[in-house]
């Protein structure tokens, strides 16, 4: 199963916390956005492997924009 991580806010990619191929546990940080002068972490909703990152550090993103894809172990 592939889960698409969408941006919860309009903002800027502040930091990438994981690289493609990384194994993630539930709630592990994938990246951090900056919006409303806050650092907003985007975390893994379930365990899996970070399959793709669709954004780079410093990139502006809109709410709902695809940020990354996570493939779960059993899928």
């Amino acid at each position: 199963m592939t889960t698409r991580l969408l941006s919860p806010v309009t903002g800027v990619v502040w930091k990438l916390s994981a690289q493609p191929g990384t194994t993630l546990m539930t709630d592990d940080e994938v990246l951090v956005l900056e919006s409303m002068k806050m650092e907003i972490p985007v975390t893994a909703p379930h365990a899996g492997r970070l399959a793709r990152l669709h954004v780079a550090e410093g990139e502006a993103v809109n709410e709902g924009q695809l940020l990354a894809e996570i493939v779960s172990e059993n899928g």
Binding site: P8, V9, S35, M36, K37, M38, I40, P41
Partner: peptide, 8 residues
Amino acid sequence: NPMVKGGA
């Protein structure tokens, strides 16, 4: 809840 949209 600052965790969601920085609390905005």
